[in-house]
Write a protein that binds this DNA or RNA. Sequence first.
DNA 1: TATTTTCTCCCCTTTTAGGGGGAATTTAAT
DNA 2: ATTAAATTCCCCCTAAAAGGGGAGAAAATA
Lengths: 205, 205
Amino acid sequence: MIKIFIIDDHQLIIEGIHTLLESEKNIEWLGSAKTPDDLSLFLKTKKPDVLLMDINLPQKSGLDLCKEIKLKYPAIHIIGLSTSNQPSIIRKMLDNGASGYLLKDATKNEIVEALHTVVTGKTYINFSVAQALKNNMPSEALPMLTRREKEVLELISDGLTNQDIADKLFLDVTTINSHRKNMLTKYHVNNTAALVKLAINNNLI
Amino acid sequence: MIKIFIIDDHQLIIEGIHTLLESEKNIEWLGSAKTPDDLSLFLKTKKPDVLLMDINLPQKSGLDLCKEIKLKYPAIHIIGLSTSNQPSIIRKMLDNGASGYLLKDATKNEIVEALHTVVTGKTYINFSVAQALKNNMPSEALPMLTRREKEVLELISDGLTNQDIADKLFLDVTTINSHRKNMLTKYHVNNTAALVKLAINNNLI
DNA sequence: TATTTTCTCCCCTTTTAGGGGGAATTTAAT
DNA sequence: ATTAAATTCCCCCTAAAAGGGGAGAAAATA
């Protein structure tokens, strides 16, 4: 009996997967959570074998959450769920301890297969994810924003100047300018307008 | 018996909703499509009462698809499905003939209720969608970009400077600057970063 | 522990954008 | 035909960003 739990902010996905797996033998539905807090609360009392985790949670990055959970409960196998197949994120997710990755275009059979695979300690990624990873080994992968860079970029995209941001974060204006310049360099764009567009279109902010 | 059909590129959503509604009386599952072409093919032979439509299809905008379907088959009631509640898109969807709108955080009960509502000719939007629409009435009053402004703004968001754009469009650099400043004024933002963000988030470019 | 990344702050100069006006000509709409 | 809107170009000036460096401290990672 594989005990599974799911965290996803979309009720429809939760109920969908629930009913989808209801008919499956050897799979026990422990429940679901819509927020990281609900998940933490649940894990205090019960431990699933597999945790299905949407990585696009509004409250917290799935990457961070995955790392946290694996740190506290290494025995839990985590499978990432996502609509978009961004190779850089998938890689980070696996680096952070995830045992598998499923796109939401996965079929019921793929999910069941994934569940059975990861409980044996193996890693499962479905075909389209594997494709995405192959087609994107080193090159096209966008670098990640650091925590501070993301914070700064969000304020930039809100229209704040370097000085405004410096005041807000209690930092020197030269520091903000450094972050801005670093971001321009690492994404190979030559001004903030292009940076904001790139960041939004790639869900970096 | 309400005959329903669904178009969504995510297999998981399709199967989820399918199993979710399987137990429901008075609802007949006609099938599903993952592309607009598949949908068109299906509609040649059978007509559902309600069409659940993911508006974030990779091949075609849900907005356009909705308009097309309603033009060809006015009797079909369309319910938009989406993860994000962007008021501007929801409004356009309803303008294009959709009878309802559901976020993917909807519960099973909300879906069933929506189905029963739209077949009577009424419009159904769930609570969180309604909230989003309410909190965003003034945003509908967002001024439109003129043809030239849109052209300029797209080049701005690609990282071009005023001079670059002037060269590209065979205009004086002061002209580009005028357009830029006009846009900043009409959208009440104080720099291009904020302008680009606003434009992308409201599908102006 | 050792090493790398991130974060912080500093110098400098040039380029670009932003803020304040104004005004003529084309294009669309009433 | 008369508005109204859009497009084009011009002046002034200041503030801000971009581009080129460098460097020490803190934090994360191996």
